[in-house]
Design a protein around this nucleic acid. Sequence first.
DNA 1: CTCCTGTACAGGCGCTGCAA
DNA 2: TTGCAGCGCCTGTACAGGAG
Length: 432
Amino acid sequence: MYAFVRFLEDNVCYALPVSCVQDFSPTSRLDFDNQKVYTVYRNPDEAAAAAEDEEDGGGGGSPGDWGGGGGGGDRDRLLLHKAQILALAEDKTDLENSVMQKKIKIPKLSLNHIEEAGEVTDYGEEDVELRHSKRQDGRKQSEGAHKSIEAVVARLEKQNGMSLSNNSSPEETFMETSEGINSMDDAVVPRVLYEELLRSYQQQQEEMRHIQQELERTRRQLVQQAKKLKEYGALVSEMKELRDLNRRLQDVLLLRLGSGPAIELEKGKPESIEPEPEVQKTYSEEANTSTYYPAPVPVMDKYILENGKVHLGSGIWVDEEKWHQLQVTQGDSKYTKNLAVMIWGTDVLKNRSVTGVATKKKKDAVPKPPLSPHKLSIVRECLYDRIAQETVDETEIAQRLSKVNKYICEKIMDINKSCKNEERREAKYNLQ
DNA sequence: CTCCTGTACAGGCGCTGCAA
DNA sequence: TTGCAGCGCCTGTACAGGAG
């Protein structure tokens, strides 16, 4: 059988075997007086040792005894504590569970018992918090506002000789205690303390309200985020579907465009399949991609591999090995520049500008022929496929794709720069 | 008219590879 | 290890054209 006891000196509650309670052997769960002060060992081992001592004849003491040669009686006076029994149960776990779940009301101790208990009712000034805790952590002190509340409660309890449940509100506390205060004709200090307690209580209520509002706001935000995430997922799948459809459409269009000159398609001359823009005809630089190839075999998803060449679309072929090297290139800039060199070659690039617009730095500048917009779109498409493997963020993709012209422009500048440097070196060499 | 964007170009900085 | 050349990249400037 286990008893849930409240030690009067520090108000700490424990579940202890009934053997810890001196002169107490209950026959049922209700066989106790909750208004009586019992004498209790805090530790079952102490109770067992005391029982052994009793069996051995009491006095004398062993070398391990506390208090030197003081004997069992002295030690018991140190180990025994005044306590109130609040509940009984057969099993310790049941007892703790029922105590933690239910709020046990602490009954008032009868005056007779308190008188019997003597100095035990002299509670501490600060630490009178009622703790439903286990022995190990039961002695931890609360801080800050709690401490001041505890102090107030302790003083009120001391002055009124009343037990106070920690669940009662400050208002209730004041109602309960004011009678005692009036009777003691000492209303000044308790009223100040009461106001302090009340303020603290109201402040905590206010904080609680704030926290609840914050919680509600966070919950609403979470719900909105979840909705957005759902919409985003739907958009991503839709975008993928559109891309797929777009590719299919391009393939169909290319096939239809090529179906007129059927002989050329059979010959596998990719350049003839697609209509080249006017500028491309004027500045025919595409000699490096105008090779004849047999019917392509699809590999690597959309790109087609045949005879060591990779079809990038629209009849543009590049060397397979260079293509694989390109795939491991780090950075959009290098990727774009290298791809531009693969498609046009440095000889073509150095005599072109991206859009065919003349430089604005020189007034009488002659515009250089533009790069084929069609091939530029192939470069963009390749870069798009590459970026799309890294991210699905359309904004980021668009932002990175917008730099394609800049990269190619830079590449043209770099090629021209190196050409000029070479010319300078040659001129220098010739002079020497 | 102003502001913004895109393009071409020059110049410079930092990294890398190579030869001395 | 050091100096140099080549290359990639960034920044600043000038200009054109479109949007508001």
